[in-house]
Nucleic acid binder design. Structure first.
Lengths: 206, 206
DNA sequence: GCAATTCAGCTAACGCCGTTAGCCACGACG
DNA sequence: CGTCGTGGCTAACGGCGTTAGCTGAATTGC
């Protein structure tokens, strides 16, 4: 009779009642845990980190806060999943930009191989500012992340830098700095950030 | 008998006991408020933001938490003072580097005018990582800051960039990115950050 | 087919957080 | 000598993450 049962109708995805988790990829999370992470992400992106509370998260799912601990050991574990999502999605965005770039280059109207990549990075980060900050403004929980994910997220930029690690790191620092300073409103209101991006990219990758 | 009195010996700048606040500059803070900020800073730099609590702060001063509200309207107001300190000190560090640079340039053994500035920025930030993060990872409370401070902190870099705003912003983003990523341990352990700094600075300012 | 176990919810509560209300001692000043 | 502002105090509130322990339903084992 609790309204929790109403909330579960959101599931309606897995009506498989026999196979528990015998998919090809060993599932990182149970279906319910994935629902929780999805709700956490909605909450974070809509309202920011201050609102992402175990109680509000439970509320949105129609359950009580302590029940969340049946699925995650603590709040940090939920956040780790959000960080993993961000890394994976930004990796996808960069990989997509990479192939788009290659296509354009084939037509020989090359706009500089870093430019599309940087634009993709910026667009993704600014589209998900709270998520980007959550994933970025603390030490990476490397041990709890899917193996290889960090490398995968870094690889497109490294490739674009021709394997030059120093250049790739300098470029990453520039891009992250631009994005995070913009997100936090540290630039003057009238600053021409497009111009600053262009300037930085052009000098870093002439 | 409280150790709060011991904390004041850090000040040792103003032993004037008669004039309350009739200095040339209209004092931003009462002496007691300055003691509180000093204790807050010690706490933050020693133990990080999680330990900077109204209760632990009061503890260190030998008083109870609610008494702090006789001196500051809320915790945020204390943090604003810490942010102001960081901006002022980093401005000083950059200005010092600027004049040192000028002296070296006069002897014509110029190491690139940005290099000393960047080094000073990096050294200051890494010497005060918690303070740097506090001052940097949220919107600037511009309205509550001493007027002109933000500009002053930005000016040395802008001068070194010959007034080129775009270049200055790109360089700032690069430097901030390098520092903040290093502080949060986002680079691989074996990354040669000196090399990445050199690479970035050389390409940004050839 | 029934017992046993696991799962996923619940309530109550703990200790921390920032913050408020209201009390009081003391020193300065008219 | 009274008055009043200053700067302490205690008690308490609501919100936070989290734990302990209960319960009913579903699944599993014999």
């Amino acid at each position: 009779m609790t309204d929790a049962t109403e909330a579960t109708d959101v599931t309606d995805v897995t009506d498989v009642t026999d196979v528990p988790d015998v998919t090809d990829v060993p599932d990182r999370l149970t279906p319910r845990a994935r629902e929780i992470v999805a709700a956490a992400r909605d909450l974070l992106e809509e309202s920011g980190p201050a609102v992402l509370t175990m109680r509000t998260l439970a509320d949105r799912l129609g359950i009580k806060a302590p029940s969340l601990y049946k699925h995650f050991p603590d709040k940090h574990a939920v956040e780790v999943e959000l960080i993993a999502q961000m890394l994976e999605e930004s990796a996808e965005a960069l990989e997509a930009a990479e192939t788009a770039e290659a296509a354009e280059a084939a037509e020989s109207r090359t706009p500089g191989s870093l430019e599309t990549l940087a634009e993709a990075y910026r667009v993704y980060a600014l589209a998900h500012p709270h998520l980007y900050c959550l994933a970025t403004e603390r030490p990476l929980p490397r041990a709890a992340l899917p193996p290889g994910l960090e490398d995968r997220a870094a690889r497109p930029l490294l490739r674009a830098c021709g394997g030059d690690l120093d250049l790739a790191r300098a470029t990453w620092a520039f891009a992250h700095g631009m994005v995070i300073l913009e997100i936090h409103g540290r630039f003057p209101e009238d600053a021409d950030l497009d111009a600053a991006w262009k300037r930085g990219l052009r000098t870093l990758h002439p």
